[in-house]
């Protein structure tokens, strides 16, 4: 929809930065502190389709954003044959919705909530799996009296308002947010005589990945999961159900995982041929090296995908090279 009420977005930003070099150039770096406030933020928003369109651009409200960026470069060890140098980046960022166009009301259709981050997840909350126990059967009976058809092996979501009825109006809540609380990058370079080794480690912490629910309906390929059966009363995944093409009605509640991870992005090892050899070859220099991109995750909150990319596929590359200077 062409929104005739559209106006400019305004941002005020403060930034404080310090660059420093210390200890005879052994340690250098910079610190940036920033805070900004945006009013009349321009975003595409969902609107009631009654007007004929499902989205439009609109000035949706005000947000604040503050954070720290820190960079440290250090030479940790330096001897005649050996050097170890590091670069550390660290940043943390807090964006918040401070008000919305309609005042102080949350906007559920767009999942914008005052005091929350801009990109949040909102859904039913998975508690566990209904079990074939006397207590659970009695509990299910109360839900089923209100029209549910819960059976042992189904997902048990939290009945937030306690009315023994799970419904979209009363039993969904904010589950998490998709942007991390903080990230870091840590690069280390080691040199020993003609050898050099570099390792770049990268990590993101404090965010939610929305992936991992499985339909368990027996038609499409899916990963191996620990699913419920009478012999395996797990609380992880519900029982398979061939008759239900969509899977458990509350399966989206299985989706939300802590996405925190630490990952080696790059690993490289090189060897410079000594001058005695290069001279014989009549070359100014000669370097043999091997590099590996994305060798793997050091730590991850989710086992079945790469939370860096949000998917289960990623590129892993190995490069073996020779640099020759003429």
């Amino acid at each position: 929809m062409a929104n005739l009420d559209l106006g400019w977005e305004h941002t005020t930003q403060w930034n404080l930065g310090v660059d420093f070099v210390l200890f005879n150039r052994k340690l250098s770096g910079s610190v940036d502190l920033y805070t900004s406030r945006t009013t009349d933020l321009l975003l595409r928003r969902s609107i009631p389709s009654i007007v004929g369109y499902v989205t439009t651009w609109d000035n949706i409200g005000a947000t604040s954003n503050k954070g720290i960026d820190l960079t440290l470069n250090s030479t940790n060890v330096q001897t005649r044959d050996f050097e170890w140098a590091s670069t550390l980046n660290f940043s943390t960022n807090r964006d918040r919705i401070t008000s919305l166009a309609n005042g102080t009301n949350d906007d559920l259709a767009n999942l914008w909530f005052i005091g929350q981050r801009l990109a949040v997840y909102y859904d039913y909350v998975k508690d566990r799996i209904w079990q074939n126990t006397t207590e659970d059967l009695a509990e299910m009976e109360k839900f089923n009296a209100n029209g549910h058809k819960f059976r042992p092996g189904d997902i048990k979501v939290t009945d937030l308002n306690g009315d023994y009825r799970i419904d979209a109006n009363n039993d969904r809540q904010i589950i998490g947010h998709s942007s991390p609380k903080w990230t870091f990058g840590f690069n280390n370079t080691f040199t020993y005589k003609n050898w050099d080794l570099a390792v770049f480690v990268f990590g993101r912490f404090g965010f939610t990945v929305a992936a991992g629910s499985e339909a368990l309906q027996g038609r499409f390929a899916q990963r191996v999961v620990n699913y419920w059966s009478p012999e395996n009363p797990t609380n992880e995944y519900p029982s398979p159900n061939y008759n239900s093409a969509a899977g458990d009605p509350f399966r989206s509640a299985m989706n939300y995982q802590d996405g925190s991870f630490v990952k080696i992005r790059n690993l490289s090892l090189g060897y410079n041929l000594p001058a005695s050899v290069t001279n014989k070859l009549h070359r100014s220099n000669c370097r043999v090296y091997a590099q590996m991109q994305n060798p793997g995750l050091v730590y991850s909150g989710v086992s079945w995908l790469d939370p860096d990319l949000g998917g289960s596929t990623f590129n892993r590359g190995v490069v073996v090279g020779l640099n020759v200077g003429f």
């Binding site: 969902s46 009631p48 389709s49 009654i50 309609n102 009301n105 559920l108 009363n170």
Partner: peptide, 24 residues
């Protein structure tokens, strides 16, 4: 559709859960 109930307002504020239930 839930998308409709979640998007509309009444007197400048979103519907309460009870109001949504009534409109459903």
């Amino acid at each position: 559709p839930q998308t409709f109930l979640d998007a509309i307002q009444k007197d400048g504020r979103p519907l309460t859960n009870e109001e949504k239930q009534q409109m459903q």
